[in-house]
Design a protein around this nucleic acid. Structure first.
Length: 570
RNA sequence: UGGGGUGUAGACGAAUGGUAAAGUCACCGGUCUUUGGAACCGGAGUUUGAAGGUUCGACUCCUUCCACCCCAGCCA
């Protein structure tokens, strides 16, 4: 990858891979990213993607994209497309290796028959409730605590092989109703790992699959699909989150019984981030209940949302790399993510001046009709970004926060009688404040020093502050959307008795400012354009923009030590 | 309860029996600055979940305990 992610991360998965190569267990490295197309990707997936693609890359191997689409009730082509777009946007390439578990249905069916013939699988007619009962997982002691006695065998467990074969074929042929029968692996009903107590391999579902249509009415379960799919593709290291750790014995069991290529499953701890939720279930709930506008709401940790917010793929990748990989289930502070974002945007985002809460300034000694263009640096971090011309005139807007009638000790900005610099323009001094009936300041009268054009005083005098500004006559009116954390608590599930997690939703997570002014060029910028509004933060043009009314999302604010000082003195 | 996991500063996370236990974020202080940004310099903080044991030497090996997380779908 071309960006400046220079240090080589080392982690236990890479150690395993190294060992496997050294021992000869594998002679190459091939990973996969296996999303189910039933929702959109979020930053947790980005971590998984970064691990699987990253490891393959480190070991000169390949990574497949495979859709794990074994549940026709939940999956859609729309998600397949969106997921591909997101993975690509993140900067990863699976080349021509796009696969679908649903393409393996026939092979899986054949393998199931093999298992039946080996006496390792049987058609069961227990209902779902009965299966649970027989598994022994529904028992409680006198105190109501869960206990887990050994399960007992299904009465259908010892059906003759021929009968199983016949029944299984008829299951496929659609002779039986949904839920009336299953195919189960014959393992051990007393196994301490519940996944090994005769897991269901196939269930009957007369449902249309988004890819196979009505070709099938039996669908394989995840466990009976995943390992074999890995094996078919020659995947060496099947990297997933710890949620699947207790499925590994079953993963291995199926592969061993079938005698097929032995992919190795390795698990890592899933990502948690402060001030947000990171699971499809909760994200969906926020959307369905209207707490956010959709999967691409810029407040969401979805890839779509983050993209709209103005995140760069580089920042997300740098973050994934920096947080490392382990199996502990910690929670990463969101500041870590913000840092990676600022770091990249600082290098790459062109600077622009924009005033979010305008306060009018009239330069009384500047001629009424005069205007001029001043040269501004596009990005002080990147000389190749060049310069631009910014229009200046008698009437300007500055940020309301940059003026205080009675400034506290550490406030360096404008106040009555004080001189400050207007960035790339002139020194100005405040002479007078105009207030309305309510005592609100509506305008400032200032004078400028023509000798300070460009921002330096020939006499060497200094000012303590530099303000951003915009020419009232030239500026373009814009809408700006400010975002704060979605939740008021680091852990949204930090709740009092009986409280719903959504009570921790931050009512101020979105603030819309509709009276903002930006440099004239911003009207023409494309949606998705990222820049820094000087002294404010990084912003990204939203697709809601029209030529008449550009809309900007605040991606992330600049670090603000003044705010910190204020908070401390409060 | 059974099974599977995890515990190293506020957060993430290195250290593979051998120097005062990396690094990043956050925090604190300073330098510099035409962004109170960036950059740069410096600082504080853990004694490695607890208790025992093995060893010249333990985050690392052993024992016991404690805490937390996950699973107990015909979801993935």
């Amino acid at each position: 990858m071309p960006e400046n992610e220079t240090y080589q991360p080392t982690d236990f998965i890479r150690e395993f891979v190294k060992e496997d190569l050294a021992s000869g267990r594998f002679t190459y490295v091939h990973t996969r990213f296996p999303p189910e197309p039933n929702g959109y990707l979020h930053i947790g997936h980005a971590k998984a993607i970064s691990i699987s693609f990253g490891i393959a890359e480190d070991f000169h191997g390949k990574t497949n994209l495979r859709f794990d689409d074994t549940n026709p009730l939940k999956e859609k082509m729309e998600y397949v497309d969106a997921i591909q777009e997101d993975v690509r946007w993140l900067g990863y390439d699976w080349e021509d290796r796009l696969f679908f578990a649903s393409d393996y249905f026939e092979q899986l069916y054949e393998w199931a028959k093999e298992l039946i013939k080996k006496g390792k699988a049987y058609v069961c007619e227990l209902s779902d409730e009965e299966i649970r009962e027989y598994r022994g997982t529904q028992e409680f002691d006198e105190q109501g605590n869960r206990v887990t006695p050994p399960g007992k065998n299904s009465p259908y467990r010892d059906r003759p092989i021929e009968e199983n074969l016949d029944l299984f074929e008829r299951m496929r042929n659609g002779e039986f109703a949904d839920g009336s029968k299953t195919l189960r692996a014959k393992i051990d009903m007393a196994h301490p790992n519940l996944n090994m107590r005769d897991p269901v391999m196939y269930r009957i579902m007369h449902a249309e699959h988004y890819r196979t249509g009505n070709q099938w009415c039996i669908y394989p379960m995840y466990d009976w699909t995943h390992g074999q799919s890995d094996s078919i593709e020659g995947i060496t290291h099947s990297i997933c989150d710890v949620g699947f750790e207790n499925h590994r014995p079953l993963y291995d069991w199926y592969i061993r019984e079938l005698g097929i290529f032995p992919s190795r499953q390795i698990e890592f701890g899933r990502l948690h981030l402060t001030y947000t939720v990171l699971s499809k279930r909760y994200l969906r709930q926020l959307i369905e209940e209207g707490h956010v506008s959709g999967w691409d709401d810029p407040r969401l940790p979805t890839i779509k949302g983050m993209r709209r917010r103005g995140f760069t793929p580089e920042a997300i990748r740098a973050f994934c790399k920096r947080i490392g990989i382990s199996k502990s289930d910690g929670i990463v502070e969101i500041q870590q993510l913000e840092h990676c974002l600022r770091e990249h945007l600082n290098q790459t985002a062109p600077r622009v001046m924009a005033v979010l809460n305008p306060l009018k300034v009239v330069i009384t000694n500047y001629p009424e009709q005069q205007e001029e263009e001043l040269e501004a640096i596009n990005n002080p971090e990147d000389p190749t970004a060049g310069t631009r011309k910014v229009p200046f005139s008698r009437e300007l807007y500055i940020e309301r926060d940059d003026f205080m009638e009675e400034p506290p000790k550490k406030f360096f900005r404008l106040s009555p009688g004080r001189e400050v610099r207007l960035r790339y323009a002139y020194f100005v001094a405040c002479q007078e404040m105009i207030k309305d009936d309510k005592g609100e300041i509506v305008e400032l009268r200032c004078t400028y020093d023509p000798a300070t054009r460009g921002g330096d005083a020939p006499d060497g005098r200094k000012v303590k502050a530099t303000l951003h500004w915009v020419s009232a006559r030239h500026a373009v009116k814009a809408e700006v959307r400010l975002y704060e954390y979605l939740f008021t608590k680091e852990d949204p599930f930090d709740l009092k008795e009986g409280e719903d997690w959504k009570t921790n939703l931050n009512p101020h997570s979105l603030t819309v400012l509709s009276n903002c002014y930006v440099e004239p060029d911003m009207a023409a910028a494309q949606a998705g354009y990222r820049c820094q509004f000087e002294r404010l933060g990084y912003f990204c043009k939203d697709p809601d923009s029209t030529p008449e009314r550009p809309v900007f999302n605040r991606t992330v604010a600049l670090k603000d030590t003044w705010k910190k000082i204020q908070q401390k003195t409060d």
